[in-house]
Design a protein around this nucleic acid. Structure first.
Lengths: 209, 209
DNA sequence: CGTTTACAGTTTACGCTGTCAACCTAGTCC
DNA sequence: GGACTAGGTTGACAGCGTAAACTGTAAACG
């Protein structure tokens, strides 16, 4: 017998209740605390009922990952709207990226810091959308497409290295965190915009020795 | 009854056999496949016997992490031994770092990409040793201690971002991987050695506005 | 109206995980 | 010979993701 209506938050919409509870657990207790049984008991159904709406636990997490990318894209996009010098616009975009990571570390963790085998099944289509912030960074370099993507990727890896190590608490606590963030963001943007000093671009290197 | 001697590799030294098997599983099947029962059955004992030598599964993993740091330190240290220009020496050190990460991704994963709550218990003393490669990078900048540590950390975060995203297979496969690595390493080293262009150092910024 | 079908859950179960408490057993020492 | 100990074992607990079978309800159809 299904549970009486009063035991569930949204009445018939169990799927929404499951997603809401999953989000709540993620934000309050972190990814490690996410379990089908815990969600089910909080929502008032059994663990297997989750599989009526999500093919697997991963699929449920993918729904949360999607939410994260929506917010990240919104933030980075918003930061680049106001005009200004390329360096300044890029700096704002980069700061929007790291701000998101620090304000929503639980989202960032499932988006970028999860085991490879758990992300493998993340649909390729969604993956493309996931790279949108990177493409924004790349476009702002004003370079050729391939070159821009390379520079944007380097900047992105720098930002990701910074926020992932800070989220994982691997960085010396004696540091002035804000100064580290500011300087890293600055270095990433300058590095992405300026050509590598005294060196031809990687594509050209092949053809002109 | 303890198992007969022939079932175990090193005779009485069960602890060593457990560590050997754990390393073998890690390198062959990855961190996700590491389980006490799997190790135990391969070694020829019960899962609980592991707790005679390791306080927890985490403690066993910490032993593997220690091994990883020994090799990483050896590589980075070795790369900086031969003399040369500061930039060239730093480039070699950085390449040694990323080479280690790509040749031993399973080690790198448990060393730097593990959940925060699993590394929390990693002893602080070992943690200090873990930062040795970073300090090497910092020393090579030839800057003041605090400034050097900041620059070294920025370089390190860049390298970590690169290798962690590559290991997790989050980077566009269309890329020329070697070119990306080369340019990122170059950018990281140049950024660490050269002062942030047109800007005072972060410490000075406070005292000389 | 009665029957069928589909839906939306449940119960039960399997095999896996890390870990603890209690037990056993061979060897050593007094 | 009896006590002690080191080095294991067995059994259990609480939890995990998930697959299969079952059940009650409601709508659709002849």
């Amino acid at each position: 017998m299904p549970p009486s209506r009063s035991t569930r938050s949204t009445g018939t919409d169990l799927e929404l209740a499951i997603l809401d509870e999953a989000r709540r657990v993620l934000l309050e207790s972190g990814y490690a605390a996410l379990s089908t049984r815990r969600i089910a008991s909080a929502v008032g159904c059994t663990a297997t009922s989750i599989y009526l709406y999500y093919a697997s636990k991963d699929a449920l997490i993918h729904a949360l990952i999607d939410e994260g990318f929506v917010e990240l894209n919104r933030r980075v996009l918003g930061a680049t709207e106001a005009d200004g010098e390329p360096l300044e616009r890029m700096r704002r975009a980069a700061m929007a990226y790291v701000d998101f990571a620090f304000e929503r570390p639980q989202y960032y963790e499932i988006m970028f810091m999860l085991r490879a085998d758990q992300m493998e099944r993340y649909p390729a289509e969604a993956y493309r959308r996931a790279r949108r912030p990177l493409e924004l960074l790349a476009e702002m370099t004003g370079l050729s497409e391939e070159q821009a993507l390379l520079r944007g990727t380097i900047a992105w890896t720098t930002l990701h290295g910074l926020v992932s190590l800070l989220i994982a608490q691997r960085i010396d606590v004696r540091f002035d965190r804000d100064a580290l963030v500011r300087d890293t963001v600055h270095a990433a943007c300058v590095g992405a915009l300026a050509p590598l000093p005294g060196d031809a671009s990687p594509e050209l290197r092949k053809t002109s020795p």
